[in-house]
Simulated assay, not measured.
Amino acid sequence: MQQLGLSAFCLTTADRSVFPNMAGAAYGFAGMGPYRGGQADLLRVPYGDYNCLKLPPDAEAKQNDYVMLADIFPTGWHCTELAGLCPGESIVIYGAGPVGLMAAHSAMIKGASIVMVVDRHPDRLRLAESIGAIAIDDSKGSAVDQVLELTNGVGADRGCECVGYQAHDPEGQEHPNMTMNDLVKSVKFTGGIGVVGVFVPQDPAPQDPLYKQGEIVFDYGLCWFKGQTIGTGQCNVKAYNRQLRDLIFCA
């Protein structure tokens, strides 16, 4: 059986001689080490017995599918878990990058009734449509209004934030709070929101003093009034990769 290394780096003894105050570096996550993660041409996995995942006999034939288990597929799946998605529910996903598209794909696997994906890049929106999602171009009008129209004014049952603090409006202005506030408005009363887009304690290149401290102006009053729940956090890849591997194998 072939093995797939997770997108994780662990410091070796030699590494610690160079970075003596650093205990480890994992998943390319900000503040967890000097490495850039596993989305690269070459990947080293010092503790492969723990980090590697055994793949079925069809690994070579489905290598483009199995490689998604290193990070992207589990993270997209994790976002739908945080949102609390159940079969038959509608969901809106902000961001049609790799994680957003995998969140959309995960939602379909879970039996979502409607999957809406918000972005403004034509190539990403075409990919979203190619997997059966409804593409919403926020450069052509309010994404919130479009979601409400598609859900008869109620809003989506669930929402996923797959953009993070570097969210920009169609004019290119950074608004770290934009997708979070749009989700509050797009998701129904008592709905759930999952957040896997990266938000950091200090914005390294802020366009506003508030963002420098990792703070955003958030519509908490509306969120509270609507009784919404929010789940956040980095994905624990190993909590999902075996289950998702088996889904790929059985597909």
Rank of each mutant, 00 (worst) to 15 (best):
A23C: 01
G24T: 13
A26M: 08
Y27S: 06
Y27Q: 11
G28M: 05
G28H: 07
G28V: 11
G28W: 08
F29T: 12
A30P: 00
G31R: 13
M32V: 06
M32G: 00
M32K: 05
M32T: 15
M32I: 06
M32D: 05
G37V: 12
G38K: 07
G38Y: 10
Q39G: 01
A40H: 13
A40V: 15
A40P: 01
D41V: 12
D41P: 02
D41W: 12
D41Y: 10
L42V: 15
L42C: 02
V45N: 07
V45S: 14
V45R: 04
Y47P: 00
D49H: 11
D49S: 11
Y50Q: 11
Y50I: 15
C52F: 14
K54S: 15
P56D: 12
P57L: 15
P57C: 10
D58F: 11
A59V: 13
A61P: 00
K62W: 14
Q63V: 15
N64S: 13
N64H: 13
D65T: 06
Y66S: 03
V67Y: 07
M68A: 14
M68K: 10
M68W: 11
L69P: 09
L69S: 09
L69N: 07
A70S: 15
D71F: 10
D71A: 09
I72N: 13
I72G: 06
F73N: 07
T75D: 09
T75H: 04
G76T: 11
G76W: 14
G76P: 05
W77R: 02
C79S: 14
E81T: 03
E81W: 04
L82H: 08
A83D: 06
G84K: 07
G84R: 09
L85S: 03
L85M: 08
L85T: 05
C86V: 06
P87G: 03
G88A: 08
G88M: 10
E89V: 05
S90I: 08
V92W: 02
V92P: 01
V92I: 06
I93P: 01
G95N: 02
G95P: 00
G95W: 08
A96M: 03
A96Y: 02
G97M: 07
P98W: 10
G100L: 08
M102T: 06
A103C: 03
A104P: 00
H105D: 04
H105P: 00
H105I: 09
M108L: 14
I109W: 06
I109T: 04
I109K: 05
K110D: 06
K110V: 07
G111T: 05
I114W: 01
V115S: 02
M116K: 00
V118R: 00
D119V: 07
D119I: 09
D119Q: 02
R120D: 01
H121I: 14
H121F: 10
P122S: 09
D123M: 10
L125M: 09
L125G: 03
R126T: 11
R126Y: 04
A128S: 12
A128V: 12
E129V: 04
S130G: 03
S130T: 13
S130K: 04
G132P: 06
G132M: 13
A133D: 06
A135E: 10
I136C: 04
D138R: 11
D138T: 00
S139A: 15
K140C: 12
G141W: 13
S142F: 11
V144C: 01
V144I: 15
Q146T: 11
V147I: 15
